[in-house]
């Protein structure tokens, strides 16, 4: 893969993340970091795809990475992790898969030539399933690091147990 093209992709991932960050009205001090997190997450996904991992697992890897960095970012910049994680994960949304699925559904609901039907049907289902699973893996990937690193709440549960005893 061309190295220059790779880093160019990083810039686009970062810009898309920044756009959504501004749409969600994040604090100004977090913008720089959101750019970096979005770019790194997107590049992780691109790298996984390049190695030959399938698109669902690559998206999962990218979003887990984003979730993990945003926890550290939250500690240093004093903002909730979701402020970093949600804008940065959105550039990985499977827009084209969803669009192709819709196109397929429209074709299927209209007149399809007899010999083409099976192909259109299988394309539509494959695109739709890809879009759904990528979306799910993005949401799961962001949520998993939060679930693992919940020291505060675990501490609180222990204290409550002691009180009850």
């Amino acid at each position: 893969m061309d190295l220059l093209l790779f880093f160019e992709k990083g810039i686009w991932f970062g810009l898309a993340a920044i756009g959504f960050a501004i749409l969600f009205n994040v604090p100004v001090r977090t913008l720089k970091l959101i750019f970096i997190i979005g770019a790194i997450g997107g590049l992780t996904k691109t790298l996984c795809l390049f190695i030959g991992i399938n698109v669902i697992l690559s998206s999962f890897a990218g979003s887990v990475f984003i979730g993990t960095i945003s926890i550290f970012a939250a500690h240093t910049l004093h903002a909730p992790p979701m402020v970093f994680a949600i804008p940065s994960v959105i550039p990985m949304v499977p827009g084209v898969f969803a669009y192709r699925m819709m196109l397929g559904l429209m074709q299927l609901s209209g007149k399809v030539p007899e010999n083409m039907f099976n192909q259109v049907l299988s394309n539509t289902i494959s695109n739709g399933l890809n879009a759904t699973f990528i979306l799910l893996s993005l949401a799961l990937g962001v949520a998993v690091p939060f679930l693992i690193t919940r020291k505060e709440t675990i501490k609180r549960i222990n204290q409550n147990n002691k009180k009850n005893v």
């Binding site: 992709k9 810009l15 898309a16 756009g19 550039p91």
Partner: peptide, 18 residues
């Protein structure tokens, strides 16, 4: 204006990525 421009830039970034 900043919101409109940056979100549109994000849209065109998407386009480039795909």
């Amino acid at each position: 204006f900043v919101i409109l421009t940056m979100v549109s830039l994000a849209g065109s970034s998407f386009c480039r990525l795909f």
